[in-house]
Design a protein around this nucleic acid. Structure first.
Length: 669
RNA sequence: CGGGGUGUAGCUCAGCUUGGUAGAGCGCUUCGUUCGGGACGAAGAGGUCGCAUGUUCAAAUCAUGUCACCCCGACCA
């Protein structure tokens, strides 16, 4: 029994609701795939659900082939689990928290590391039980600040989340092996879904851990910014993207005497720029300003809260006014000074103010004479030339800041034996030092490990290492590739559809999961974690406008065969239950179904034009038109039309007897 | 959470400035003519104008409050 249009629910819309802005959202609504219930929550109608289920099926097949076992865990998760791993605070407001009638608190799972770790932890006893890899496909909940773009960022969504457990890193059964295995499975999954995607080097973010890759579909509406080298050998997201060596020069000649400017109520770059323009009539470009962010660093074994830490450092992060400080690169500075696991973050306002920093009006020379402060400068800021920066005095900025004169020479400790101009007397650890070298050395064998760092707090001696020049800012379009192979980074927007992580022991340690080792010793397993946003796969497929795949055009969606609601739509002209046309349609449907493709017959009592338009809108890969006209000739014919008209039939008549064979060949291609 | 915006028929929107008791297009129903790329004609159904309070003889319209939704930013599958 084929599926009939009149028996399912396909409320197509001629106009998209006004609150839908991006193509995938508009088309999913117009094609009757989804229905919005509230902000960030969408129901799936029959056609949308069919596509979603097809993606799930592909995922299940590939997970099975990859040796992962499917489980389902509760969405309702005791809050206790989240507190034990410290993630209740880390997740913060994004965590949906509910209280039951007894006053017990639970979280609606936004992800399942805790729950799975708990589950698997109870099932494994011995190192012989490892490795294990389990996964689930389950609804997740996140109280997003701002749901948007339809199913691309919703508060309730379907996620495939896989987790693996290991005793060791390398070799058979190690986490590296499973990571590669899952990575490959993800490539197969997204290939089968017909997505045009790139794999980018990613930050591990809240997950913690040591390595991560993101699977990203390039599209202008994407929320992620990714950078890829035009040499094709490097791709990373904004948080992670390094930059190649950029020249720097602390020794440039001053452009003039320091000139203090009264800039009332202008703590920001924009404020200063506007002030210069309106009040002083001078055009001041952000790239001639130095942005100095007051940060605190603490070592891994110290208290993360700088106000509580035993030995906190200030870190003045200096970037050009038109650039953005990158938090992860900041962390790299902290690690270079205070060792692995060191943290860096914006200094608490009260603390910094109490310690004499005039927030909003800080310049690099605030470090002069301070024993607790390190200055880290991005190469683009570490230049000679004309600089405007904070005067270290409330409501004042200075013009003609000069590195050599106003910081290096001014701070006797920072420039031992300073001599001829142009001689670098400060220490540059590593310009544009690639972050990845810290994160996962094996990915970057060509880079040396971090240099030794003098972390002594001995202030009696000059410490030239308190001024460093390192890659500090977010990458921008046109930056040199961090591989330093002459490649140039290009920026593009993308939708993240999947991500793989090496997690480490954060959760097993947090929840006290151990197995018994060979010598009766307790082993805390290592974990990997792998996720796919299933709804996003649909939206990304529709959104995609790549060379290979075009997910939509002005008429509607263009589905890849593998995830289309139906592979084939049979469009009878003038349907009548007992007609010859109906017989032919049902016959064709049955044969195509036998060949393994699903079919819907548009048996509505509509004019052909309406049916054609709707079929285009929904985006069935292949349409077969059956009409009296074709059936009445000497040889009965039907017409085949591929939705993606770039390759495939455009509505040519084919003999009825060959129709199924041709159709199946097209779908297999 | 800051900034901006919108709530009027299933969908898109007009009406609001200058209060006078509700409109258009699409969709829907019925009939007729049609029927190979969103047909035409005729006749209909459908809205306590997001909600509450206030001002007024009178509120979609003015005021206050509230809720919802959307966009931009900061966070993220």
């Amino acid at each position: 029994m084929p599926d009939f249009w009149t028996r399912t629910l396909v409320p197509t819309l001629r106009q998209a609701p006004g609150d839908a802005e991006v193509p995938s959202h508009q088309l999913m609504l117009r094609a009757g795939l989804i229905h919005k219930l509230g902000s960030g929550s969408y129901g799936y109608l029959p056609l949308g659900l069919r596509s979603l289920e097809k993606v799930c099926r592909i995922i299940r097949e590939e997970m099975h082939a990859a040796g992962a076992a499917e489980v389902v865990t509760p969405c309702l998760q005791p809050i206790d689990l989240w507190e034990r791993t410290g993630r209740r605070a880390a997740y913060g407001e994004n965590l949906f928290v509910v209280e039951d009638r007894h006053g017990r608190t639970s979280a609606l799972g936004p992800t399942a590391e805790e729950v799975i770790t708990d589950l698997v932890g109870h099932c494994i006893k011995s190192y012989k039980d490892l490795p294990k890899c389990v996964y689930q496909i389950q609804t997740k909940f996140r109280d997003e600040f701002r749901p948007r773009f339809g199913v691309l960022r919703s508060r309730e969504f379907l996620m495939t989340d896989g987790y693996s457990f290991h005793t060791h890193i390398e070799g058979p059964g190690g986490i590296d092996e499973e990571y590669e295995n899952q990575y490959a499975a993800y490539e197969r999954i997204f290939n089968r879904c017909g997505l045009d995607y790139v794999v980018v080097d990613a930050e591990t973010g809240e997950m913690g851990g040591r390595a991560s890759h993101q699977f990203t579909v390039l599209t202008p509406v994407g929320e992620d910014t990714i950078f890829s080298s035009d040499k094709g050998n490097y791709a990373a997201n904004l948080e992670k993207a390094g930059t190649g060596t950029r020249p720097h020069d602390f020794a440039g000649e001053p452009t003039g005497e320091i000139e203090k400017v009264h800039t009332p109520d202008c703590p920001g770059i924009d404020d200063v720029q506007t002030f210069f323009k309106k009040q002083l009539g001078t055009k001041l470009k952000p790239q001639n300003m130095l942005k100095t962010i007051v940060c605190c660093m603490t070592a891994a074994d110290d208290d993360p809260d700088p106000t509580q830490a035993k030995n906190p450092w200030y870190l003045l992060a200096v970037v050009r006014g038109d650039h953005e400080v990158n938090d992860e690169k900041l962390k790299a500075v902290a690690e270079a000074f205070l060792g692995e696991g060191a943290r860096a973050g914006m200094a608490p306002e009260k603390l910094a103010t109490a310690d004499g920093f005039k927030l909003g009006f800080v310049g690099p020379h605030a470090a002069v004479g301070r024993d607790d402060t390190v200055v880290a400068v991005d190469p683009d800021a570490a230049q000679g030339g004309f600089w405007v920066t904070g005067a270290n005095e409330v409501d004042h900025h200075i013009k003609h800041f000069n590195w050599q004169r106003d910081l290096i020479d001014a701070d006797g400790r920072a420039a031992p034996g300073s001599g001829a101009a142009g001689t670098q007397t400060y220490t540059v650890y590593a310009e544009a030092y690639p972050r990845s070298a810290y994160a996962d050395a094996h990915l970057w064998p060509e880079h040396a490990p971090p240099p030794d760092v003098d972390t002594s707090n001995d202030t009696s001696q000059p410490n030239p290492k308190r001024l460093v020049c390192m890659d500090l800012r977010n990458a921008i379009d046109g930056d040199p590739s961090p591989l330093n192979d002459g490649g140039t980074l290009k920026a593009a927007r993308g939708i993240e559809v999947g991500q793989v992580f090496k997690l480490g022991r954060k959760y097993t340690e947090g929840l006290g999961v151990t197995v018994t080792g060979e010598n009766n010793e307790p082993i805390t397993p290592l974990m990997g974690c792998y996720g796919i946003g299933v709804n996003r796969v649909l939206a990304a497929a529709i959104e995609s406008q790549g060379e290979k795949n075009q997910g939509h055009d002005e008429s509607g969606i263009i589905w890849p065969v593998a995830i289309a609601p139906y592979a084939v739509c049979i469009t009878p002209i003038a349907w009548d239950d007992d007609s010859q046309v109906a017989d032919v349609c049902k016959n064709l449907a049955a044969k195509i179904a036998d060949a393994g493709y699903d079919v819907i017959i548009d048996d509505r009592d509509e004019r052909p034009g309406v049916k054609f338009k709707d079929a285009d809108l929904v985006g069935f890969p292949l349409r077969i038109t059956v009409g009296d006209k074709g059936l009445s000739g000497d040889t009965a014919t039907v017409e085949l039309k591929a939705r993606d008209g770039r390759n495939g039939p455009k509505g040519e008549a084919v003999p009825l007897q060959d129709a199924v064979k041709i159709a199946v060949e097209l779908l297999n291609a």
